[in-house]
Structures are given as C-alpha cells and as structure tokens.
Amino acid sequence: MKLRKNVAVSEAGLLFNPVTGESFSVNPIGIEILNLIREEKDPEQIGRIILNKYTTDQATFEKDYYDFIGILEHHNLLESHEETKA
C-alpha cells in the first residue's frame, strides 16, 4: 500500500491532492501514520510504533487504522493495485 506520489502533506496537517484538487485536514496521529506509510512501513510495524507511543491497545488501533486506510482509499489518496503493479 502506497500513498499517491504527488500527494503533499504539510507539518500543519494539510494534505493536498493535485489530481483531484481537494484539500484535507489531518490530525497529528494521522500525519504520523501517513509519514510511516510513505516510509513504506507495513501495518505491523506501524502498529508497534503507535502502541509504544500512545495509550491504546492493539485491537483498538487495528480497527482505527483500517478505518483510516478505508477513508484514504475513499478519497482516492492511495495508489490502486493496478498502478502499483505497473
């Protein structure tokens, strides 16, 4: 899973998708996860990092993580599998 190449994430939590022209706001933990995805960390690695840093448990985070990924997909911010293969 990869973030679309030209998607820009700012420090302040702004995300701009130049393909669609849409802007988004992301909360700090969301930015952290986006950056980890960009560093090509897999879900288990991301989970470990977040669990080390925040007061949560694996089940809760996993649920929220996949929910978040679902919304990223919904907004067309992830590269689809076809694109990844190509």
Binding site: A12, G13, L14, F16, S23, S25
Partner: peptide
C-alpha cells in the same frame, strides 16, 4: 493561492 484557502480553513 491554495495556501490562502487552507490558511483560513485550518487556522
């Protein structure tokens, strides 16, 4: 500029 729109939207 997009930044102006983002500035007023976020802050």
């Amino acid at each position: 500029d997009r930044e102006e729109f983002e500035q007023i939207s976020i802050y």
